[in-house]
Design a protein around this nucleic acid. Sequence first.
RNA 1: GUCCCCAUCGUCUAGAGGCCUAGGAUGACUCCCUUUCACGGAGUAGACACCGGUUCGAAUCCGGUUGGGGACGCCA
Length: 491
Amino acid sequence: MSQKIRVRFAPSPTGYLHVGGARSAYYNYLFARNQGGAFILRIEDTDVERSTEESLKMVMSDLQWLGLQWDEGPTADAKTELGSYGPYKQSQRIDIYLDVAKEILNAGNAYYCFMTDEEIEAQRQRLISEGKNPHIQSPYEDWSLEKAQAELKTGKTAVVRFKTKHLKKDYIVNDLVRGEVRFPSDMVGDFVLLRSDGMPVYNFCCAVDDHLMKISHVLRAEEHLPNTLRQLMIYETMKWQAPYFGHISLVLDEDRQKMSKRRGATSCFQFKEEGYLPEALLNFITLLGWSHPDQKEIFNREDTVKLFSVDRLHPSGAVFDRVKLKWMNSQYLRAMSNEVLWNHTEPFLKNAGLELPYNDKSWAHSSISVFKSYMETLVDGVTFYTALDDSKFEIKAESAEVLAWEPTKSVLRKWTELLKTHSGEKFTESEFLKMQDTVKNETGAKGKNLFQPIRVAVIGQPQGTELKILVPLMEKASLVKRAEKVLASLK
RNA sequence: GUCCCCAUCGUCUAGAGGCCUAGGAUGACUCCCUUUCACGGAGUAGACACCGGUUCGAAUCCGGUUGGGGACGCCA
C-alpha cells in the first residue's frame, strides 16, 4: 500500500486534556513522525451543549505543553487553520455531513424515526426484561421517505437512523493492536446519524471525516471498539475504503477502573501544575501499552520516534502508577543542569510567594544543586526552598523529641553564641564545620546529640538536607534569628 | 442482561513452541555509602488465573471456565 500515512487525534473540547487522550495523541504523533506521515488535529465539537472555545484552547495548550505539534488543524490561537482538508472543526462541516446523510437516506439505508424518548425508554426496559438486546425497534423504519417528509411538515421532529437489521453478517477488522476482531452486525441497533435538530452525531461525522481527510490509520482507545462497527457500516454503505484501525488499551486507575478524578490528577494540566515535566509524563505514558525494543525505561522523544512501531503496542489495560511517574519525573529532574532546573523551579517558588534572593544566580544554581536529588517534582522545590525563607520558618512538631534531649540546650546556646560572634555576613562550608567542632568540644555533645539540635536551629526539623551545604546558602542574621527562636522555645 | 475486548511479580512490562530455574523497571525489604534524611551502589522476596486439548516439548497454539474491563445515548 503506497498510500500516504495520515493519522489524527480527534478530541472533543469539553474540558482539559486527559492523560489517556494525551497518550492517544502521542501514539498518533509518534506513528506519523516515524512513518513520515501527517499528524492531524480534528475537533469533534458536534455536542454543542458541552463543547466550548475555552476547552479547545485548553486542549491545544496542553498539546503544546507536551510538544505535540500537529501538521493540520486549527492554529494554536484558534483563529485560522493549517492544512488543505479543512475545516477541521466538525461544527463547521455540518453541510458536508448533511449531504452524506441525504445520500444515505435517498438510497433507503436510513430513515426518519419519530419515536419519543419515553417510547424508546419503555421499549428498552421491555427488551431488557425479556433478556434481549435493548436495541431500538422503530416502527418507522419501513416508512417511505415521502411519508416521513410529510410527517415532518406537520411540525413533528425526528432523528435520522441508520438501518442495520438487513445487514446480517459479521464485520471483520484486522486491528493493528488486537488482530482479527469479529463483530456480529446485531451487536448494534439502528444508530442515530442526525439528531432531531439536524446536528450530526459522532459516529457519523467521524466516518465521513476520516474518509474525506484521507486518514490512513485510526489509533484510538479501546472504548471505541464498538463504534468501529458502526463506522464500518457507514463506509460500506458509502462504498468507501475503511482506514486501518488500531485500538489501544485503556488507562486505568489503581482500582482497575477507567481513570477518574477522585483518585488524583487525570489531566495534563494538573500534572503540569503538580510540577511534572512534559518529557517525563510522555515517557511514562508511552510505557503504558508500549515497550522499548531494548527494554529501556528512560528514553527521549527523538528515540521514541525512531523506534515506535504499532506491533509493540500491548492490548491489555494499564494501571496508571503515580508512584512510578514520580520516579520517572525525578530521573528527568536529576538529569537537568542546575541552570535549567532552576529556571523550571523558579516560577513555582514565586507562585508560592516565597521571599528568596531570586536575582542572585550563583545562589540560585548552587541552592538548586543541593535540592536536586531531593526533588521528585518541581513542586517539591517549594518545600525545600521554604526552609530558606525566614518568614516561613517554624519549629516542626517532629523536633519536640530532639528539643527535649538533655544536651540540646547547651548545644543551642553555644551555637547561637558562635553565630553572633561570627565576623562576616555569610559562612563558608569550612567555617560552618569549624563552628560545629567548637560546639562539640565545648559542650561534649556528639553524634545526633550534636547534629540534630543544630539542624532544628537551622531548618526547624531534625532531618533534612546536609547542613554544611545548606548553611553557606543562608545569611548570618537569618541563622541567628532562627537559633534564638528555637532557644526561646526551650523556656 | 447481551455483545466485544483483555488476562505474566502489588504495578508497568519482556516473552511470537525448546534460549524460561520466566528477564527488566517500579514499589517493598536488607546491606553498603553517609554524623540525619535523600541521592547513589549491591542484593533478597515477588508472577505465567484455572481446567482440558494439540505437541517429543507450551507462558507462548486451540477450546472451555473464572476474573477484569468496555460498549449497548438525539456523549465522544
